[in-house]
């Protein structure tokens, strides 16, 4: 198992270095580390590699909805220089342009619209969803075809995880009365984040679960699941905490209400920071090679990248676990019965 992980990490690192190398070569001469933030952030095109002056990219659809013009679909290649693949105001198309920071803007600044583009992260989102669905549905079909038998294939891979989420996360935190209602949600959250984290570690992949929009949405899901299922005790605890003198309620109640929002906020920030930081650390070690342009640094950086990659595999799992665990705890607090402090 350890040897396999090591091999995997080395392989990943080799790819990282390979791709990063050409990414830098494509960048500005002075900007040797710009590729780091370019990788971490979302983009309207999927950039894989650059060989000399040839850019290996996947142009993505730009979808715009505006009240006056309805739905419009373009290719992101319409908005860039065909040679350098740079976006900019001068490469506008049909009244829109993508600026240097990859923001879609209207030439007419008065117009308002919604950018529904399939960006790099949206495409990654579809890939993650497809892979999660493929693995879990094939596992489910095994259970349907062989009732009451030992798991095999995909089923034997996911079964311990499903049992772990159910018995170690859902059951102890939510309680045996209600945990069955929330287990599907927690399992979905876990597998989505876990696969998102792991697939994000692949070279050329997008930093999906390290994007704040994604983590914010997941946190909002937990927020709604928690508060829509909150029982009388839970809301009484929030708006009129039992056992607290009335003058203190003036302080406690606002704190409790703020607490409703800090919980998902913490979920959002934790996952975003952990995954993005991991990517930045790995890319920074690779960036050092190009800053110092030395073989010694290259060797040291490679060793560190291998090491950090192994940690990232761990972090990918831990962060999925932590997000699921805290979601379960928040839901558990909301549905707990006869809990008076």
């Amino acid at each position: 198992m350890v040897r396999k992980l090591l091999c995997l990490s080395v392989l990943l690192s080799v790819f990282w270095i390979g791709f990063s190398n050409v990414a830098v070569a494509a960048g500005d001469e002075d900007d040797k580390t710009g590729f780091i933030m370019h990788h971490v952030k979302d983009s309207h095109e999927w950039h894989f590699a650059t060989f000399g002056h040839t850019h290996l990219t996947l142009p993505l659809p730009v979808i715009i909805y505006s009240s006056d013009r309805g739905l419009e679909v373009f290719s992101s290649s319409n908005f860039q220089n065909p040679e350098t693949h740079l976006f900019g105001k001068e490469y506008g198309h049909n009244g829109y342009y993508i600026d240097e920071h990859d923001h879609l803007k209207a030439v007419d600044e008065e117009r308002s619209f919604i950018d529904l583009s399939i960006t790099k992260n949206v495409a990654m989102l579809f890939i993650v969803i497809a892979i999660v669905l493929w693995i879990l549905l094939s596992a489910a079909s095994h259970y349907k075809k062989n009732p009451g038998q030992a798991p095999k294939g995909a089923a034997s891979f996911i079964e311990p995880i499903v049992v772990f989420v159910r018995d170690e996360i859902a059951l102890p935190n939510i309680g045996h009365h209600k945990y069955k209602n929330f287990t599907p949600y927690l399992l979905t959250i876990f597998f989505f984040i876990w696969f998102g984290n792991l697939l994000g570690l692949f070279p050329g992949a997008a930093n999906l679960t390290g994007n704040i929009a994604v983590t914010a949405t997941l946190a909002i899901f937990t927020f709604f699941v928690t508060n829509l299922n909150g029982n009388k005790d839970y809301w009484k605890h929030v708006v009129a905490t039992p056992g607290v003198p009335v003058p203190l309620l003036l302080i406690i109640v606002p704190v409790e209400i703020i607490g409703l929002f800090t919980k998902p906020f913490a979920l959002m920030v934790r996952l975003f920071v952990a995954i993005t930081a991991g990517h930045i650390v790995i890319l920074s070690f690779i960036g050092l090679i190009f800053v110092f342009e030395s073989y010694a640094v290259g060797l040291a950086s490679t060793i560190m990248v291998v090491f950090i990659n192994m940690i990232e595999l761990l972090v990918a799992t831990i962060q999925a676990y932590v997000f699921t665990l805290f979601s379960a705890m928040y839901i558990g607090q909301a549905v707990a019965e006869h809990e008076h402090h």
Binding site: I114, D115, L116, I118, V122, L125, I212, V214, T217, L218
Partner: peptide, 12 residues
């Protein structure tokens, strides 16, 4: 980096 994109939120 830290401002969520509206399109990605909707797709997500």
């Amino acid at each position: 980096l830290i401002i969520p994109g509206s399109g990605l939120i909707i797709w997500q």
